[in-house]
Design a protein around this nucleic acid. Structure first.
Length: 562
RNA sequence: UGGGCCGUCGCCAAGUGGUAAGGCACCAGGUUUUGAUCCUGGCAUUCGUUGGUUCGAAUCCAGCCGGCCCAGCCA
């Protein structure tokens, strides 16, 4: 569970079976994969699945994986995204062999296009975009040939060069593959290979005014890099014949094979770039790294560990079946990892003051609290105790049912690590709201057990009032109330209005590092927490990464219903 | 109704002709100074469906049903 994120997984899948077969047949000896994001947005949990697949295979087969930026559309790509993608891949624990841009290959790609033209397998089309669309046919009707389809090789060569030499405006011409306008696969009806775009490219600047499209670029880039297994999502299945056509009609350095797998779909979440972007720009979240976002950067800020994400990806598997993963799977992967590593501390999020009337007014003492109940090697910390403490308001109930194992008038409860206390009196304000509790403690129960061996069912957490550190805590819940917000007519209506609840009167025990975002804590009985990027010693801010499993809440819930 | 792909427990997922792994969830117990963790046990006579081949089928064949993807000069 605490293994490094880049550890080998024992999970097999149909893609690994293909690789095993290729290896056994002697087709290849070094496995090469690539993760090819377009730098036009932030990476999310869906990308993590692909990253784990591609980098995981390369690692397990002693091959290598490239991080290639598929940057053939200069209108949407930015340095900000490049930086974040690199950071996220590394944070997940993976190392790329090389990190090229598809745009690094523009020169070679241009030469390949010339080759196709010379073979009579590509032509310059001068129809408008609308005409091209109209002539493409429909799902059930074949397309019709462009009037420019039979231009001579010489004319095509001259026109394409002129396109490259900035002699035309955007949209005046395109380069198309000459395949089959009658193909039942629409992708094969003379797909566009190059378009004119007078836009400055983040990597090539103004060197080019023609840009290749994905289908022309991808397989050739794979081939140039020696990629053996080009893994992509299901919606590219129709592109595979075109991927193959490009490689089969050109003399390429190597012959990669494309295989498709199902993209990740997670309940109560969105991975559409457009909708994610809307959440950010419309202000429903604070940014791409808002802790509620299932972007890698959001999850990092929320307190996910890379290991938990990698383990999640192992748990869900790789298939060709469209499926939707329940949130519980992600939550379990997270809790498993955090449970193993998080240091235990006590914090009170919604405080209720308790005065222990028989405890000496100016006395204080310190208890040793284990940093981890199952890992004594992680040591202990000192937990201060005094006459006035805070407990969680939820841990007190005036009229408590029998199964409520916490504090209520006349009942005794254990303060974790400290003493047994009994509630003697409830102090209320004029409005009838509970203001504080008067309790007594049993000095003989020091450490949390009494010599007479009497049983105390409940143990609650607490913080000494005079030693407490004031803090703000963000409680996060799922961003959407519907299992499939992406299917809603308007995903805004699925937004959870209580996805973030700010508790700004929290009380921490002193032994909590306020600004180290790398330390995962478990606040006992409350969940896993981590300091936010904005946290300072003066104004501590913590994010609740995930609650603990709560079977009491489940019982309460069923009692209300039943 | 053109083409491509998919259909094994509530959600994932092994299985590749020899008689249904595992995980999550759920249920029932046990341990516990976190109603956490941990441990034990339970949880598909059945693999979308109907026929066929076979001594034997989730696995092979045929039909049917259901779902997803494709008509950007996006990726």
């Amino acid at each position: 569970m605490t293994d490094s994120s880049a550890e080998a997984s024992d999970s097999s899948n149909f893609i690994r079976d293909i690789i095993d077969a290729d290896l056994a047949a002697g087709k290849i000896d070094t496995i090469v994969t690539r993760f090819p994001p377009e730098p036009n947005g932030y990476l999310h949990i869906g990308h993590a699945k692909s990253i784990c697949l591609n980098f995981g295979i390369a690692r397990d087969y002693n091959g290598y994986c490239n991080l290639r930026f598929d940057d053939t559309n200069p209108e949407k790509e930015e340095q900000e995204y490049i930086d974040s993608i690199r950071r996220d891949v590394q944070w997940l624990g993976f190392e790329w062999h090389s990190n090229p841009f598809a745009s690094d290959y523009f020169g070679q790609l241009y030469d390949f296009a010339i080759d196709l033209i010379k073979q009579g397998k590509a032509y310059v089309d001068s129809q408008s975009a609308d005409d091209i669309r109209a002539n493409r046919g429909t799902l059930t009707e074949p397309g019709s040939k462009s009037p420019y389809r039979d231009r001579s090789v010489e004319e095509n060569l001259q026109l394409f060069e002129a396109m490259k030499n900035d002699e035309y405006a955007d949209g005046e011409h395109v380069l198309r593959a000459k395949i089959d306008m009658n193909s039942p696969n629409i992708k094969m009806r003379d797909p566009v290979l190059y378009r004119i775009r007078h836009v400055t490219h983040h990597n090539t600047g103004d060197d080019w005014c023609i840009y290749p499209l994905y289908d022309f670029t991808h397989g050739l880039s794979d081939s140039i890099e020696g990629v053996t297994h080009s893994l992509c999502t299901l919606e590219f299945e129709d592109h595979r014949p075109l991927y193959d056509w490009i490689l089969d009609n050109l003399e390429t350095p190597s012959r990669p094979v494309q295989t498709e797998f199902a993209r990740l779909q997670l309940e109560y979440s969105l991975t559409s770039k457009r909708k994610l972007n809307a959440l950010v720009t419309e202000g429903h979240v604070s940014g791409w790294d808002d802790p509620r976002m299932l972007t890698i950067s959001g999850m990092r800020r929320r307190g996910f560990t890379p290991e938990s994400i990698v383990n999640f990806c192992d748990m869900i598997g790789i298939t060709k079946k469209n499926s939707t993963i329940e949130m519980g799977v992600l939550e379990t992967a997270l809790r498993d990892d955090l449970n193993a590593r998080a240091l235990r501390r006590m914090a009170v999020i919604n405080p209720l003051k308790v005065v222990i009337e028989n405890y000496p007014e100016d006395q204080e003492e310190f208890f040793d609290g284990a940093n981890h109940p199952q890992k004594p090697e992680l040591g202990t910390r000192e937990v201060p105790f005094s006459r006035e403490i805070y407990i969680e308001r939820d841990d007190f109930m005036e009229d408590a049912p029998r199964k409520f194992f916490r504090l209520s008038p006349g009942r005794e409860v254990r303060l974790r690590f400290a003493y047994y206390i009994t509630c003697k009196e409830v102090i209320k304000n004029a409005a009838g709201e509970i203001e504080s509790l008067i309790c007594t403690y049993d000095p003989a129960s020091r450490g949390g057990s009494s010599p007479d061996g009497r049983k105390v069912k409940g143990t609650i957490h607490w913080v000494s009032a005079s030693h407490a550190v004031d803090a703000t805590v963000n409680l996060y819940d799922r961003l959407f109330t519907m299992p499939n917000p992406g299917a809603a007519a308007d995903f805004h209506q699925a937004l959870n209005p209580e996805s973030r609840v700010v508790m700004n009167n929290a009380k921490f025990e002193p032994a909590i590092e306020l600004t180290d975002n790398a330390i995962a804590y478990q606040f006992e009985r409350l969940g896993y927490f981590i300091s936010d990027y904005d946290s300072t010693s003066d104004q501590p801010i913590f994010n609740r990464t995930m609650t603990l499993r709560d079977s009491w809440a489940k019982i309460e819930q069923s009692q209300k219903i039943g």
